[in-house]
Simulated scan of single mutants.
Amino acid sequence: MLDRRQMVFIDGQNIFYSAKDYFGEEVRIDLPRLIDHFAIGDLKETYFFDSHLQDQDKGDFYQFLKKNGFVVESSTTRYRDHGPEAVGIDVGISTEMVGRAHMDEYDEALLYSADTDFIPAMEHVQEQVGKDVAVVQFEDDVRERMEDAADRFIALDDEVEDFVYDFPER
């Protein structure tokens, strides 16, 4: 497995909201440690996709990620009738995952999300390009369809103390 080329695709909003559901609002994830913990192959690239409110400054956080080797893609959240809505995250992740697979830049994608909107991209990467996709997420947040679509599922719950700061008792 160590010789397999891996590429990481993180749905920032999905992973952070899942962690907050699991631990509460004050949870903090050490993303570099999280990636190092589960990327057991030859890690080629780590993409972090996020959205932010127009008046929200995430510059320091994004700079931290970039200094730690992450490629950061962020868009401004739009307001709709039902409230704030992230725009372009799913399309961005799907495009990079499929494009990089077609360029033969990885053997396995590690997708940090429970969003079933990624299933068509996952299936394309698997069936048309012959790549593997692992879904990495908290077990309670993953729907059976998403887990079934993945070549393997990695539950964050099992080793959470390795990448969460001062996590509270559950």
Rank of each mutant, 00 (worst) to 15 (best):
Ile29Asn: 06
Arg33Lys: 13
Asn68Ile: 12
Asp55Pro: 00
Ser18Tyr: 02
Ala134Gln: 11
Leu65Met: 05
Arg100Phe: 08
Glu108Pro: 02
Thr46Trp: 01
Lys58Asn: 11
Ala155Trp: 11
Glu26Met: 03
Asp60Leu: 05
Gln6Gly: 03
Phe118Asp: 05
Arg4Cys: 08
Arg143Thr: 07
Phe163Trp: 07
Asp90Ile: 02
Asp104Phe: 15
Val135Glu: 09
Glu169Pro: 07
Ala109Tyr: 13
Val71His: 08
Asp148Val: 09
Ser51Lys: 01
Asp158Ser: 15
Val160Ala: 12
Asp55Tyr: 06
Ser94Asp: 14
Ile89Phe: 00
Ala121Tyr: 04
Gly83Glu: 02
Thr116Cys: 13
Val133Met: 08
Ser74Lys: 01
Arg80Leu: 14
Gly12Asn: 00
Glu159Met: 06
Lys44Val: 07
Asp158Ile: 11
Ala114Lys: 02
Val142Cys: 15
Asp107Trp: 10
Leu156Asp: 08
Leu110Cys: 10
Phe61Ala: 03
Val136His: 13
Glu144Gly: 07
Val160Trp: 05
Glu26Ala: 09
Asp60Ala: 07
Ile10Val: 09
Tyr112Thr: 06
Phe153Gln: 07
Gly130Ala: 13
Glu169Asp: 13
Arg4Met: 09
Gln126Asp: 15
Gln56Thr: 01
Arg80Ser: 12
Gln137Ala: 15
Asp166Arg: 00
Asp60Ile: 02
Gly83Met: 00
Asp132Val: 04
Asp36Phe: 09
Pro32Cys: 03
Phe9Asn: 01
Phe49Leu: 07
Met103Leu: 15
Met122Asn: 06
Gln63Tyr: 00
Ile93Leu: 14
Arg78Lys: 09
Gly88Lys: 01
Lys20Val: 13
Ala101His: 11
Leu53Asn: 09
Asp117Ser: 13
Ala19Ser: 14
Val133Ile: 12
His52Asn: 05
Met7Leu: 10
Ser18Pro: 10
Asp117Asn: 12
Arg145Leu: 15
Tyr17Pro: 00
Glu105His: 03
Ile40Asp: 10
Asp30Trp: 03
Asp36Val: 04
Ala150Pro: 08
Arg152Glu: 14
Thr95Gly: 02
Lys44Gly: 02
Lys44Glu: 06
Val164Met: 15
Val135Asn: 10
Phe153Glu: 05
Asp57Phe: 00
Ser94Lys: 12
Val91Glu: 04
Ile40Gly: 06
Glu85Phe: 02
Ala149Leu: 05
Ser94Thr: 14
Leu156His: 11
Arg80Phe: 14
Tyr62Trp: 07
Arg152Lys: 15
Ser113Ile: 08
Pro168Phe: 04
Met122Tyr: 04
Asp55Trp: 06
Ile35Asn: 03
Lys131Val: 11
Gln56Arg: 04
Val125Glu: 08
Val164Ala: 12
Ile29Arg: 04
Asp81Lys: 08
Asp158Pro: 03
Glu96Tyr: 13
